[in-house]
Design a protein around this nucleic acid. Structure first.
Lengths: 109, 109
DNA sequence: TAAGTACATTGCAATATTACGATTAATATT
DNA sequence: AATATTAATCGTAATATTGCAATGTACTTA
């Protein structure tokens, strides 16, 4: 059905899944890494940096923006993008808790 | 096209995306959380625990197993699943590096 | 050996995702 | 105003994902 039955999971489980999905495509990983590397706003550039067509990049940016992980401000004809620090920190908190759960001591399998 | 152009990204970017995709569905998040919570192997049970049909769970388990995040050993008619500790730790390393990149100091946007 | 149990696989329908050409919208420049 | 630039949106094709009924497989027990 291609449609996740979100209603049977907890809010936290759904939240983790949503964040993870944002990282579930290498283009979005690349975009985010570039924003980190540049250590500033990016106005334009991303289409040249990543090797995908402009509408494709725009779509990926939209997803990241909708999730709140980046923000974009208009600057003339171009748009400047950067990491949304506060939201990124919150996301990191959620994901880290999930990733850092205590491994079972027993070596059953 | 529904098909990521993996060839234009680095191995690491693709690896991050693959791991993230595994967590990109709440059912798989729930399965993993349960395996952590139980702190032991799970033989059966998962279909009752998560509210999805048996083939659906089986499919999600397969994906997690293919990625190496869990392992399953046959035990009579049932199969015992548990976290693959070593691989989980490796995955955590990769994901943590991505999540913990230094936030830009400048507040440009 | 027959029936039961537990899980995997197959096949399929519904929906989502990815990618991009074409177009549009908004601002800049001449 | 006319043109250029930049990025968003629309439309569409190709592929992927999710979910489950039906079926298959392997082991257990009566």
């Amino acid at each position: 059905m291609g449609l996740a039955k979100t209603e049977i999971f907890t809010d936290l489980q759904n939240e983790i899944a949503l964040f993870a999905k944002a990282f579930g495509h290498p283009a979005r990983v690349a975009i985010l890494e570039y924003l980190f590397k540049i250590d500033a706003c990016i106005c334009g550039d991303l289409v040249n940096e990543i090797g995908l067509a402009q509408p494709t990049i725009s779509q990926h940016l939209k997803e990241l923006k909708n999730l709140g992980l980046i923000k974009g401000t208009v600057d003339g004809t171009s748009v400047c993008y950067c990491i949304h620090k506060e939201n990124w920190t919150n996301m990191k908190e959620v994901m880290s808790k999930f990733l850092n759960q205590d491994l079972p001591k027993s070596d059953c399998c």
